[in-house]
Structures are given as structure tokens and as C-alpha cells.
């Protein structure tokens, strides 16, 4: 029994999966904390919406355009700021997010505080989930490529990676460009689903919401990010049952889950790991050892010590 309400929640879940995967690439895989992911989402959303509304562009072209514009800004932000490290990068991305919001509030073409309304309702469950699956496949592909291994190397130890010949700035910008691309894609889908855009919807808290999905699911893990996006889209809806205590529960749940599973629900779990489980379940205990399969980023590699400072 899938009614319009569940279908809608599932659709939004798909949009969140795409955006969270983008952030996972930047923060989870490459280890660069970004607090401005909503800004890239808003850039993609506005660019796509303006293209459809003002220039009558077809939906798919608008989506692509929005994603590319977001990626362009990712690179633009990346060049100067990526020489910052750790929390200084985080604060710069947060600043970028606020700047984007304020600029949108001052742009006539973006409708200022009135926002953009009347965007055609072109996204639906199937377009969103086709693109979500494509994004997942892309992410797995990237993860298993030379690029993905360079990203991981930078996260684990930037200096060592540099010493081994990984040009960290180059790869970090690539990660930002790709991650922003997916944020922009998600933004375009969002714009054509909700049909209304307002700068206030892309504030700091939105960035935090997406970050929550990645961290809760398990940083660097693609199945984890998908699960995180799924859970955090569903939780506010499910918690409607507790009425006015909803946000109290939501906050408490974040704390509880982090204490219970500090590395996220599926931290260190990859599709290859899941495949190994399945093999083992179906073939008895004759499965291949953990992380040993030709899947590149096996579990063993990822579960090894994380930077532990606190």
C-alpha cells in the first residue's frame, strides 16, 4: 500500500541520498569537513529553476545545467580555500554558505525574499530514483578507481599521500567538484519537486542536516550514506507520533545514535562487505575473508584506525 504520502517521502529520500552521497565524497571519503553543502544545493536548485522558468529549457537539461553550475562553484571555492586544513576549511565553507544565502536574498533574478515559485513539477519518484541509482553506481565506480584511492589516501594522511606522489590540492578540488555536482543535481530535483525556492531553505541548518546523514550512516561508506539519508528523512515523519516532543526526540536521537554507534550505523561497511556477507549466508561459512575481495575499498582498509583526537 503505497499512497501519495509515502511515495512523496520516498521521493524526498532519493533526493537526499543523491545530495548526501555528494557530501560523503567530500567529507567521508576525502576527509574535508564541509559545512556549506546546502549552498551548492541552492546554486543547483536556483540555476535549474531559472533555466526552466525563464528560458523554457527541458527538465533534464536544467538538471544538468544546475549540477554543472554547482560543480563550477565547487571548483571556484576549492581553489583558494583548499589550502586550509581541518576546521579552518569547515568554517570557510560555512562562510561560503552564508554568503551564498545573502547573495540570493539580494538577487532580483532569484526573486529576493519572495523566492522563485511556480516551478514545473517535473521530478517524480522514478526520475529521482533512476538518478539516485545512477549516482550510487558512479560513487562505487569512483571509489574503486585511482581517483577514489587518492581521495582515501588524502583522508588517511595527507602528508604521506603527497610524499607518495598524490597531488592533494588537485584531488581535493576534484572531490569538491564532484561532490558539488551531486549537491546541485539534488538541488535541481528538489526545485522541480517542491516547486518553490526560498533562500531561507538553504541555511546553515540544511547543511548540517545533510552532514548528519553522512556521519550517522557511516563516513566514507556508500551503503551507510544511503541508510543515513533514508533514516533521517523518515525520522521526522515517524516522530510525528510524539507531537510537540518531536524535535526533542530528534536531538536526543542524534546524541544516542552517536554514543551507541560512534562511527555511524554502517561505518566501514561497503557493498563488497555486504556481498561477502551474502556469499557467506548462502554458501555457508565458505565466504572470502573480510576486505580480501577484488573490490578495492574493502572493509579492512576503511575500518582501520581513524584519526582519533578526541
Amino acid at each position: 500500500m503505497i499512497n501519495a504520502y509515502y511515495l512523496q517521502v520516498l521521493t524526498i529520500m532519493g533526493i537526499n541520498v543523491i545530495m548526501a552521497l555528494g557530501l560523503n565524497l567530500i567529507t567521508g571519503v576525502t576527509g574535508q569537513l564541509s559545512l556549506g553543502h546546502a549552498a551548492f544545493m541552492s546554486i543547483g536548485a536556483y540555476a535549474a529553476a531559472i533555466l526552466t522558468l525563464n528560458y523554457g529549457a527541458p527538465f533534464w537539461l536544467a538538471l544538468l545545467f544546475g549540477a554543472l553550475v554547482a560543480a563550477f562553484f565547487g571548483v571556484l571555492l576549492g581553489f583558494p580555500t583548499l589550502r586550509l586544513s581541518g576546521d579552518y576549511l569547515a568554517i570557510a565553507t560555512m562562510g561560503f554558505g552564508e554568503i551564498t544565502r545573502v547573495i540570493l536574498l539580494n538577487l532580483d533574478i532569484a526573486g529576493r525574499a519572495l523566492g522563485i515559485s511556480g516551478i514545473p513539477h517535473s521530478s517524480n519518484f522514478s526520475t529521482v530514483w533512476i538518478l539516485a541509482v545512477l549516482s550510487i553506481v558512479t560513487m562505487v565506480f569512483v571509489g574503486n578507481s585511482r581517483l577514489g584511492r587518492a581521495f582515501l589516501a588524502i583522508r588517511e594522511d595527507e602528508i604521506a599521500a603527497e610524499a607518495m606522489g598524490v597531488n592533494s590540492t588537485y584531488y581535493k578540488i576534484q572531490a569538491f567538484a564532484l561532490g558539488s555536482f551531486f549537491a546541485g543535481l539534488g538541488g535541481g530535483l528538489y526545485a522541480h519537486y517542491i516547486t518553490y525556492l526560498n533562500p531561507s531553505d538553504f541555511g546553515f541548518m540544511k547543511s548540517i542536516e545533510i552532514l548528519n546523514m553522512v556521519v550517522l550512516g557511516g563516513m566514507g561508506s556508500i551503503p551507510g550514506t544511503i541508510l543515513g539519508a533514508g533514516v533521517l528523512t523518515a525520522v521526522p515523519e515517524v516522530l510525528r507520533a510524539v507531537r510537540e516532543y518531536r524535535m526533542l526526540f530528534y536531538g536526543g536521537l542524534l546524541v544516542f545514535m552517536m554514543i551507541f554507534k560512534p562511527n555511524g550505523l554502517l561505518g566501514g561497511v561497503h557493498f563488497s562487505t555486504i556481498r561477502n556477507w551474502l556469499i557467506r549466508i548462502f554458501k555457508g561459512s565458505a565466504g572470502s575473508p573480510a576486505g580480501g575481495s577484488r573490490g578495492g575499498t574493502g572493509a579492512g582498509e576503511d575500518a582501520k584506525t581513524r584519526v582519533q583526537e578526541g
Binding site: 569537513l33 563516513m219 530528534y250 536531538g251 546524541v255 544516542f256 582519533q308 583526537e309
Partner: peptide, 17 residues
């Protein structure tokens, strides 16, 4: 054996609460 971001999310949870 947690990463630093878990503590950050926990802090966000406290803040929302």
C-alpha cells in the same frame, strides 16, 4: 574509537534538544 565528527553531531543533537 570514534572520529571527531561523531562528537560534532552529538553536539548538534544537544543543541537541537
Amino acid at each position: 574509537n570514534s572520529n571527531r565528527l561523531s562528537a560534532l553531531i552529538s553536539a548538534i543533537g544537544v543543541s537541537i534538544f
